[in-house]
Design a protein around this nucleic acid. Structure first.
Lengths: 162, 162
DNA sequence: GCGCGAGTTCAGTCTTGACTGAACGATATG
DNA sequence: CATATCGTTCAGTCAAGACTGAACTCGCGC
């Protein structure tokens, strides 16, 4: 099928990149983001530098609408930043400084919500449901410590970045 | 609308439970599980003890098919256990010992996959893409330390349980 | 061994949301 | 001022999967 040695390496490099970008798509999907957002992230991990709006559409073979929506989403998440090039009317994007931090902040938030739900239920449940109370408290503790844990990780990452 | 004092508390207790169960449904959804699986989990957090197959369907107002599929799913995840009552042909279910551990193990697994994807890409990308290599390594480290972190949390929970 | 009640599987419906092409402002440039 | 080129928004299509009712299979009890 393919040449041997570096010829093969050269040929499969693009494939590897494409493969990586696709994998990032499914990773994002598992985190509740649209696949294209993940693929954009993957693309920016490979080509970090400022990339134009239109180039994104061409390289990833997606519509301008998708570029617009998903770049705005990632921008809101703090994963990428929108810049402009002097003398060019197009928008450009590049990876933000701490691209992954915000994603973790998202999971912290979700855990806080879950913990709050358990706590509220424990408060509202009749006092004589002992078992329910106990298990609800356990659930709250679980999510609370999981959230706490992630928050420490977040702090560790922030420290490491400067 | 409602009576005052404990009358209201008595009335809203059921609402609170229903509300909690629904919330667990959306929490589960955010984790990639079907909503009904989450609601089942919520139900078992409230009523821990052995509950029959048919009662699950009635209390949660879902079809037997859904009971079957989602109990099997939760059973596979190690969140609930299937038991049997002597003299009753129905299956009974109860919360497992460490119900939440398995869920965390799932996220650890996903992080490992993401980390592996970044590592593979870093290996396959041409050596002269310096920026890409660096960012891929960062991504791998991110997921690796996130996974490591969760694993420690897991260990801490296991220790606390005995 | 027959039938009934248990859980599973199947086929179909319905909802959800990701994605797109086209219409729409907005803005800089000629 | 006109126009071309941005990015956004809108309406529509399409696919994925959650859920259900009905058919099915298995096994116990009469």
């Amino acid at each position: 099928m393919s040449m041997h040695g570096q010829a093969q390496a050269a040929e499969t490099a693009d494939d590897a990149v494409a493969d990586f970008i696709d994998r990032m798509g499914v990773v994002a999907q598992a985190d509740g983001l649209p696949p294209i957002a993940g693929r954009l992230m993957g693309f920016f991990v490979i080509h970090g530098g400022p990339v134009s709006f239109s180039e994104l559409g061409e390289r990833l073979q997606i519509s301008r609408a998708s570029v617009s929506n998903n770049t705005r989403l990632l921008e809101g998440l703090g994963v990428i930043e929108r810049t402009s090039m002097p003398g060019d009317r197009q928008d450009y994007f590049r990876l933000a400084e701490a691209p992954y931090r915000r994603l973790l902040e998202g999971v912290v938030e979700r855990m806080a919500r879950a913990s709050a739900a358990a706590e509220k239920a424990a408060r509202d449940v009749p006092a004589d449901w002992e078992g329910a109370r106990r298990r609800l408290d356990e659930l709250r503790d679980f999510y609370a410590s999981a959230g706490e844990n992630t928050r420490t990780l977040l702090a560790a990452l922030a420290r490491q970045e400067r």
